[in-house]
């Protein structure tokens, strides 16, 4: 976890890690939203189809397994605008871990889920898919630090 006192500094550091880990980057951020005319299933499967050269069915099977781990099979056919904030976050995390040897970078999770009190939900989500990524970095503001108390997250 990395905390920053201002948005400019945070975004500079974020840009640095994004350029360093370009090939393994799995970004979870409001600046990289789900594609609104695709279902969650297609959004996540796209990564495997495009980079893994898998067929639609093979890629969707992997995504369905991921959704099952997160107990979110029912959102597979839903599109971004109708998702709840937590569901959207899960879909974005699942998409991020679809990158080969993913370095998951979560950019200000409380901006994605403003109603969240602490990081227990984020920890649970990451634990459910911890076999699918190598590292995880969370970027947030310094004033959100106390919301992370007891929620230390380590990469798999």
């Amino acid at each position: 976890m990395r905390f920053y006192s201002g948005g400019e500094l945070l975004e500079r550091e974020l840009a640095d890690i994004m350029s360093q880990e370009e090939r393994r980057l799995g970004l979870v951020s409001l600046d990289a939203p789900l594609i609104s005319n695709l279902s969650v299933l297609s959004n996540v499967a796209l990564i495997k189809q495009y980079h893994g050269h898998l067929s639609v069915r093979e890629a969707e099977d992997i995504v369905k397994m991921g959704l099952k781990k997160l107990q979110l099979e029912d959102i597979a056919e839903k599109r971004n605008p109708v998702l709840l904030e937590e569901q959207r976050f899960c879909a974005m995390v699942l998409r991020a871990v679809m990158v080969e040897d993913a370095v998951v970078v979560i950019d200000r999770p409380f901006k994605i889920m403003p109603d969240l009190d602490d990081t227990s939900f984020i920890r649970d989500v990451l634990t459910s898919v911890d076999d699918l990524f190598q590292e995880c970095h969370i970027f947030d503001y310094l004033w959100n630090e106390e919301r992370y108390t007891g929620g230390m997250i380590h990469g798999a």
């Binding site: 980057l25 970004l27 990289a32 939203p33 594609i35 005319n37 796209l46």
Partner: peptide, 24 residues
């Protein structure tokens, strides 16, 4: 569709995940 994707930063998503916009 393309304009909405641009406004919604969805083209940025494709860029971040190294999906070629021209190809895809």
């Amino acid at each position: 569709e393309i304009a909405v994707m641009k406004v919604n930063k969805e083209l940025n998503t494709l860029h971040v995940f190294r999906i070629d916009v021209i190809n895809y």
